[in-house]
Simulated scan of single mutants.
Amino acid sequence: MTRNQGDLLPRPHVLLSVATSVDGYIDDTSPVRLLLSNADDFDRVDQVRAESDAILIGAGTIRADNPRLLVNSDERRANRIARGLPEYPLKVTISGSGDLDPEAKFWHHGGEKVAYTTAAGVEKLRTRLDGLADVVSLGDDIDFGKLLDDLGERGIKRLMVEGGGSIHTAFLSQGLADEIHLAIAPLVVGDSEAPRFLHPAAYPGGSSHRMTLAEARTIGDVVLLRYLPKQESGK
């Protein structure tokens, strides 16, 4: 896709947020979601949400976890309102097929929502989500650059991406991620069928590209690593 910088507002800063086990998994294969973060790290994630203009999850995460995807702190929501922002960040999802359940909690809590889909899925999704979300077609395929352009035109300056793995992989492999917040929990899943943070892909710079580590800190028994993938490490 050709991007004319003179015609479009800047794309948002893209932050990938994820918690993994020591061996890189974001869940196990049990029917109950595996909680990798601790209470303090969940609170940190709530703060990052409050600082974001939009939060994005994929259709698979909606189906698997049925999240509300909210800023939970009353104080943080009040601070957003005091700054002239909506109480909640814009909630964003992606479904190429348009196969999303209108009864999912995602649509019935928080503020405004946008659902991106393809030309093949747009009519189905507009029917299903009538009155619940703005539905946008990205063309024949999911074009993540076009998605960011549309969010930029909506005034979104900071986008927090909370997964799942295929979504994180797409943003990082296409060179669209500006920042990664990687929380590593002291757990080992050890199940090759469990979902991972990233999938095999051709990533910018290949396996020798060393990202800049901007921050490393402990949060209870979790370690937070903040990487800047577009910046080469000084080694």
Rank of each mutant, 00 (worst) to 15 (best):
G6H: 15
G6P: 12
L9S: 13
P10N: 09
P10K: 05
R11L: 09
V14M: 03
V14Y: 00
V14A: 06
L15K: 15
D23V: 01
D23C: 05
D27W: 04
T29P: 00
P31K: 04
L34S: 04
S37C: 11
A39R: 13
D41W: 05
D43G: 13
R44A: 09
R44M: 10
V45T: 14
D46K: 06
D46R: 05
V48G: 03
V48C: 08
A50F: 01
S52T: 09
I55K: 03
I55E: 02
L56N: 03
A59D: 07
D65L: 02
D65A: 05
L69C: 01
L70T: 01
V71S: 00
E75K: 12
E75P: 00
R77P: 02
R77W: 07
A78E: 12
R83Q: 15
K91H: 09
V92Y: 03
V92F: 03
T93I: 07
I94H: 06
S95Y: 06
D99W: 10
L100D: 04
P102I: 02
E103T: 13
E103G: 13
A104S: 11
A104W: 05
W107Q: 04
H108W: 10
E112W: 09
K113C: 14
T117Q: 04
A120W: 10
V122R: 04
V122T: 08
E123S: 13
L125A: 07
L125E: 07
L125C: 08
R126E: 12
T127E: 15
D130K: 14
A133L: 08
A133T: 07
A133M: 10
D134G: 11
V135R: 06
V136W: 02
V136E: 08
G139E: 08
I142R: 07
F144H: 13
G145C: 00
K146Y: 07
D149V: 10
D150Q: 10
G152Q: 01
G152A: 09
G152K: 04
G155D: 06
G155K: 05
M160K: 09
V161T: 06
G163K: 03
G164D: 00
T169V: 10
T169W: 03
S173H: 04
S173D: 02
Q174L: 15
G175L: 12
L176S: 00
D178G: 07
H181G: 08
H181C: 11
H181D: 11
L187Q: 14
V188L: 15
E193H: 12
E193F: 10
L198F: 01
L198V: 01
A201I: 06
G205V: 09
G206A: 09
G206L: 08
S207Y: 13
S207P: 11
S208N: 14
R210W: 12
R210I: 12
M211I: 05
L213N: 10
R217N: 14
R217Q: 15
R217A: 14
T218I: 13
I219H: 01
I219K: 02
G220P: 07
V222M: 04
R226M: 08
L228W: 01
P229R: 03
P229T: 07
Q231D: 14
